[in-house]
Amino acid sequence: MTKNLLEIEDLKVRFKTEDGYISTVNGVSFSVKQGETLAIVGESGSGKSVTSLALMGILPANGEIYDGKVTFEDKNLRTLSKKEYRKIRGNEISMIFQEPMTALNPVFNIGYQLRETLILHYDMTKEQANKKGIEMLETVGIPDADKVMGRFPHQLSGGMRQRVMIAMALSCNPKLLIADEPTTALDVTIQAQILTLMRNIKEKSNTSTIIITHDLGVVAELADRVIVMYAGEVVEEAPIYELFENPLHPYTKGLMASIPKVHDVVDELYSIEGTVPNPSNMPSGCKFYPRCPLGNIECTKIHPPLEYISADHAKRCIKV
């Protein structure tokens, strides 16, 4: 049994708004093992991105973790000071964002931005950092790496910018890499390049990865284990093959059935009726109940617990 690198227990995140607090992550628990790739899947408003921002310690100013435990290598991240957090962020845990154009600083060249992390965390000299930076760019498949060091983000294409982001995130050899929709903004042939790159990185290093996505295709390509989120909660957790072969929660099933398949054309797609509930107006009982084909009166009364049906497969539903 490999050790857990990260453990999240009953995480709750809320945002302060004009109408009081709105809770968008409502008791999320999961763990990530050494070297493992965990995918968090969900649609807009499921709380998947907020969860990742919370554990990076970069929630927006009006957001806060108000309950739960975040343990990274036996350290409780919630009790860290800002300064201590900064030592971990970018060094031991790093992150790749969806849109590298907004994540990269437009007024500094790539070299400066790559060196910055290395100088900060490793106390390197500029020359050392430069050498390491070029090496990192080469690792992620950027041709003419030394020239790219002098370029600015706007001079690179979307795929190249995403490679730079990955190089930057990996430059300090993080133990945990969080990738939030890393390929969503990219064209499909470029997406295939980045997914292949991420798969190669995974094979070569022992970095654990959390990949956050709405695309079950990306999940199927990269993940070892998957958690499915809906309305701020985990509704299902399973190893990758188990999840695709034996999905249990009606939401997971619906999600899988509603993707148009390239290899299996049907006349009418299955669709989940209705929309994701608003966090300020959550249904009582099961949160998926209003859209669920199996839901009945019982589901409005009980808030179903996350129940393990085997060692590694859990579901939050009383009907299945």
């Binding site: 042939t189 695309d215 079950l216 295709g217 199927a220 390509e221 093959y241 695709f244 290899h263």
Partner: peptide
């Protein structure tokens, strides 16, 4: 061929 197919198998 670049389209990821939603099936880990």
């Amino acid at each position: 061929d670049s389209v990821p197919i939603p099936d880990p198998r």
